[in-house]
Every structure is written in C-alpha cells, then in structure tokens.
C-alpha cells in the first residue's frame, strides 16, 4: 500500500498522461492511430520547446507573458528574410535566434532595472512585440517558404520527424543546463530564496537577465519550428501559446513561486495539454467547450501547486529534534 502510494506520488504526471491517452483511445477510433500520435508530437513540438523556455524563467521565480508575440515577431522576421529579401534560410534561422536573444535581453533588462514582477514587464513587452511585429510585417501573412526551410518542421530523418529531433535536442540541452551547470543551479537558487542567493555570492541581476535570454532563445527555436511546420509566418501564429505554456509548466510541476520543478515534468505537462487538445477535437468537442476545459485544467493545476505548498509549510511546523 505504502509502496503504491509512493509510486503514484512520484509518477502521477505520467499516470495522468496515460489516463488521458487511454480515455481518448476508447472514445475515438482515429485518435488511436500511430499516425495521429506522431501528429500530436509534431504539432506540439513547438509548445514543448517554448514551455521549457518559460519554465527556465519560472524556476528563477519569474514569468514571461510575452511568449506568444515573441514567437510572432521571430516568425515574421524569418518570413521577411527568406521571402521578402530572398536570402538564405540559414540566415533566416540565425537572425531569428539572434532576435530571440535581443527580446530576452529586453524582458530581463526591464524586469531587473525596474525591479518589478516580470508578469508586469512582460505584459508590457507582449504588447510592444505585438505592435512591432504588425508594423514590420505590415500585418502580412507569409506562405511561400523555401522547401529547405520548411524541412525543419515537415521532413523526416530515419523515420523520425525533424521537429521531434530538434525538440529532443532542446530537452537535453535544458536538462543538462539545469542539472549539470552552475547557471542552472543559480536559477533554482534565485527562485528558491533570492536574498539567500545574493548572500551566497550570486549576481542575481546578471543571472536573471541571462535566464530571460536563454528562455527567449528557446522561444525563438520554437517559433522557427512552428513557422516551418505550418509553412506560415504571421504575427498571430501562436497567440494562445502563453496560455498553453503556462498551463503546461504548472501542470508539469513548475511552481509559480519559483525554485521548483524539472524539465521532464514540463515535457509531460505539455504532452498532456497536446493530447487533450487533439483528443477533444477528435471526439468533436466545440472550440468553446475546449476553452472551458483548458481553463479548468489550469485552475486545477494551480490548486494542486498550492496544495503542495501548504503541505510543505505544514512540515515546517512540526517540532523537530536534533
């Protein structure tokens, strides 16, 4: 009994994912096909990468609401370079990534300089990025991407979609960064206890800005994968990404208070969101009902996060002996 409880506590996220998959497999025949499963992975690869980016900021106690329009801005930039200017797709990718660094710096700089919660600064930059993207792209939608660019999101290598391979690579990079570099440890430390982190000799401002920059690099990769997969670049390419990313992170065990969670949780959290989205479509749930379900999931995830926090605090009150 005790063993079973431990098992559930440790792997509950996987169990939730499994339950969701089983549920839709029973409910819908087209859902339970290999093709659909691969489709879910490809469809959500950009979301996994962006969620990982967001989770890096959240681990250090922050948040990034501007993700949707970072994706939009990077997307239209690749469109301008590869289509309007007719330059090499390689250059498009490089400029897209460089732009990510710039956007991350902007978010980080204002957050640190103004010393306010990044919810506020990134709410502001979200609108700024949105406006900038519309002006730069003249609100156009780009379609005719070169084949070599679209390959990033549409080709297969050895039977595995390139998008999935890229995602896997990003997951590994993030995992190594968080668990094996001191930069990753500093992110946790700042999220866990900012004052203690400062007194432990961590340059908080620098690390926080760096955290935003790395996060935005991930978001830029996500934007390129999404643009290539859909073969489309436009401002509103991923306008609901902010919601999905947050839900995925919180669901995946990244605490709103910072200092907690891991990358594997975020991946599984994103997959749960992805499977739910796909499954609900398959069983013919309307768009609007889907919104309600997604909102309910976010509230549920936050409630669970809170419950865990209270649980932790309770432990604090128990008298302890030396």
């Amino acid at each position: 009994m005790e063993g079973a409880k431990k098992f559930v506590q440790k792997y509950y996220l996987f169990l939730v994912l499994l339950l969701v998959v089983i549920f839709f497999s029973i409910m819908s025949e087209p859902f339970r096909t290999t093709k659909n499963f691969i489709n879910i992975l490809v469809q959500n690869s950009y979301l996994v990468i962006a969620s990982i980016g967001i989770s890096l900021v959240m681990i250090s106690g922050g948040a990034d609401l501007s993700v949707s329009y970072q994706i939009g801005l990077v997307s239209v930039f690749t469109g301008i370079i590869t289509i309007d200017m007719g330059l090499s797709p390689v250059l498009g990718v490089i400029v897209g990534l460089a732009l990510g660094v710039v956007l991350g710096f902007i978010n980080g700089f204002f957050t640190v300089a103004l010393d306010v919660h990044p919810m506020v600064t990134t709410l502001a930059t979200m609108t700024i990025f949105q406006g900038a993207a519309h002006i730069i792209s003249e609100s156009k939608t780009y379609f005719d991407f070169p084949v070599s660019f679209k390959a990033i999101g549409q080709r297969y290598v050895g039977g595995i979609p390139v998008a999935v391979i890229i995602t896997l690579g990003m997951v590994i990079i993030a995992y190594v960064m968080l668990n094996h570099t001191y930069f990753g440890r500093y992110l946790y430390a700042i999220g866990g206890n900012q004052e203690a982190a400062r007194l432990a000799g961590i340059n908080i401002r620098l690390i926080r800005i760096a955290g935003f920059i790395v996060a935005s690099l991930f978001i830029a990769v996500s934007a390129i994968v999404l643009t290539a997969r859909s073969g489309t670049a436009k401002v509103d390419l991923a306008s609901d990404a902010v919601f999905s990313c947050f839900t995925a992170c919180v669901l995946g065990g990244i605490s709103f208070r910072g200092g907690g969670g891991n990358i594997l949780g975020v991946v599984v959290g994103t997959l749960i969101i992805g499977v739910l989205g796909n499954g609900m479509q398959m069983i013919g749930l309307s768009m609007y009902s889907q919104y309600i379900v997604k909102g309910a999931i976010l509230i549920g995830a936050i409630a669970f996060d809170n419950y865990q926090k209270k649980h932790r605090v309770k432990k604090l009150d128990v008298p302890q002996t030396a």
Binding site: A189, G192, N193, L199, G201, I202, G259, G260
Partner: peptide, 17 residues
C-alpha cells in the same frame, strides 16, 4: 530567510556559494 535554501538538499546548500 537569508541563510539556507529550505527545499533543497544538504549537499546542494553546502555547494551553492
């Protein structure tokens, strides 16, 4: 508040500075 990171391990805390 200032000394340790309560929800991290002992080894983690000792090495962070």
């Amino acid at each position: 508040q200032q000394g340790c990171f309560l929800y991290f391990g002992i080894d983690w805390n000792i090495s962070i500075a």
